[in-house]
Nucleic acid binder design. Structure first.
Lengths: 153, 153
DNA sequence: ATTACTGCAAAGGCTTTGCATTGTA
DNA sequence: TACAATGCAAAGCCTTTGCAGTAAT
């Protein structure tokens, strides 16, 4: 997605920020990812291409991009410990995270939107962000655990 | 709620755990709270009644109570930093947290359950917990901001 | 030439854990 | 008496920050 990266860099310039190899690299890394990644995963991917990049720069850059609206950042893990990031294009994504293998299973979000809409209609609130976090086992782990008799069904 | 505390202590005994002054005190503290509190708030309330209780014991006890199903623990604040706890009586509660005044607006959870059921049916996963976190403005703040022209509508 | 950005390492905030001691059963 | 529970302090985990050096404009 060179277009997206160009746009992002144009925005950086426009706001008086500098274009550095690290910032470009992080845009490239993020552009290749369909799902949310945590800071460390992003760092590993970037580090594989440029061993000199530091985790601190990853955090600072992600923070900057979040402020500029270039990335979404959320807590989707079951424990809600690690923050996760992705480029903020396309529809919001929500997951079930498997506590056994870490797989993230995409969730249809129309019902979540329906919840938000209903909330607005019935309570008069305004909703700026909605997040559904499910914890459990992915299909493969569910089946494996059933075979081991560790899960009913 | 002495009834609740008795029940909780009966459960502790039944599972082979010991009844200690700290555990009883924490049940008393929690029983007086209608909303989620973080560990430090719970510690402060307990500490006011027994200066010898430690934060480590608060964490350990809350963890134990969570395992026993006596308390719910979640991240409901917008920043998701601090974990919060409350006695788990009554149905699960989910909120929209107002970023302006902190008010928590209760959310109907039937759609959340529907999401979970659909996920199980369509993807073969198993869901152990579901959590919806909405961020936005409560009705009062929404209206106030509209009057100030700071919110469309 | 400026001044923002970076890497490093240290610090911060919340939570967990090791260990010797205390206290329940 | 036996062993779980506690308090203390240290460590852990993720994230942020201070600082001196580096690099973009």
């Amino acid at each position: 997605m060179p277009h997206l990266i160009d746009d992002a860099e144009a925005l950086l310039r426009e706001r008086g920020f500098k274009i550095t190899p690290q910032r470009t690299l992080l845009l490239q890394v993020l552009a290749g990812q369909p799902i949310y990644l945590d800071a460390d995963e992003i760092y590993e991917l970037a580090h594989a291409q440029d061993a000199s990049i530091s985790l601190a720069t990853v955090y600072r850059t992600l923070g900057l991009y979040a402020e500029l609206g270039l990335v979404d950042h959320r807590y989707v893990e079951p424990e809600h410990r690690r923050e996760v990031f992705r480029l903020s294009e396309g529809p919001e994504q929500h997951y079930l995270t498997c506590v056994r293998c870490g797989t993230r299973v995409l969730i249809r979000t129309d019902l979540l939107n329906q919840m938000a809409n209903e909330l607005v209609r019935r309570k008069g609130v305004s909703v700026s962000s909605a997040c559904a976090c499910f914890t459990g086992y992915c299909a493969a782990c569910t089946e494996a655990l059933r075979r081991e008799g560790k899960l009913p069904g």
